[in-house]
Design a protein around this nucleic acid. Structure first.
Lengths: 159, 159
DNA sequence: ATAGTTGCAAAAGTTTTGCATTGTA
DNA sequence: TACAATGCAAAACTTTTGCAACTAT
């Protein structure tokens, strides 16, 4: 059942490690090490939550709540710091969004987002529906570091 | 010199009011009243700062600092509340962006943004360079409430 | 006058930092 | 053992709220 998601975590040459649930901690550890981060207990725990279940979109709050629910004792500050470290290491991507909360996305590839304000819900726009965006030329001396596209959705109004 | 910007503030049928700098307070008042907001002292003052100088991109902090510099005594909370009210009334547009600060744009029309992280600077992508974005179909029962496009820029790396 | 609105002090919410502790070589 | 890196308490920063004061009828 989770097997599908393990594939996502596997890197080339890693095939032997993808044997089943028991290997996940080891794989997360490897992933961290490859990103230049020591596999500490907290990082492994959060890595498990973040990368063990397919693509996810979450805030520090959400993740901390999950960690608490899973009996992983950890301060919110650690969650924040870890999210930053993961982002810096390229394991996560920060999503530009309204409001005062930062969102993180485990899908680091190029893709855009839908956001439903009423439900405070963020999700990827499926590849099949990817919008076509023609970038304009960058201003002198500048290059594009990244592109964020958010399509805000709302329910069709009831009459 | 400022005449150019007054044009931006003029609405159809308003031509008589656009006579020069002395009229700006009256015009701001009118603008507020039309938006359904009472022209209070603070709102007029902030309106002057926001709409008296062409398109602007700012945060609550920035605006409060300007107000202070201009000897307009006003708490930061009032600046926040006023920004919300102006946004609600359609006078401003909130911009989706990273980080913990909300940005506001006096240009409420459809347009996209460049953001320079190093300088914490936000500005419009000129109309001439407008990216082409083909929206995908919305999910069932949803309609598009808005679209935000941010192109993050960075200086070309020095070698 | 007064009913509704506004502005701000204080509270809440979110994020960062400094340093004692831990983990690694 | 020494040294660098980590995790978290406390501090900093950003935003919202509740209510006294004010405003336009």
């Amino acid at each position: 059942m989770l097997q599908h998601d393990f594939n996502r975590m596997r890197t080339a040459g890693d095939d032997k490690t993808a044997r089943g649930p028991a290997c996940v901690p080891r794989m997360i550890g490897e992933k961290l090490r490859k990103a230049g981060l020591r596999p500490t207990r907290q990082r492994l725990a959060l890595g498990w939550l973040l990368f063990g279940k397919g693509d996810r979109h979450l805030t520090a709050e959400t993740l901390h709540a999950e960690a608490s629910a899973a009996r992983m004792n950890m301060s919110l500050a650690t969650v924040y710091n870890t999210l930053h470290q993961f982002t810096e290491a390229g394991l996560l991507r920060e999503v530009a969004l309204f409001g005062s909360k930062a969102w993180y996305d485990t899908n680091t590839g190029p893709h855009y987002h839908y956001y439903i304000e009423e439900k405070d819900e963020l999700f990827d726009i499926p590849d099949a529906m990817l919008p076509q965006l023609n970038l304009p030329a960058s201003p002198e001396g500048m290059i594009v570091a990244g592109v964020d596209v958010i399509i805000r959705l709302k329910k069709v109004a009831e009459l």
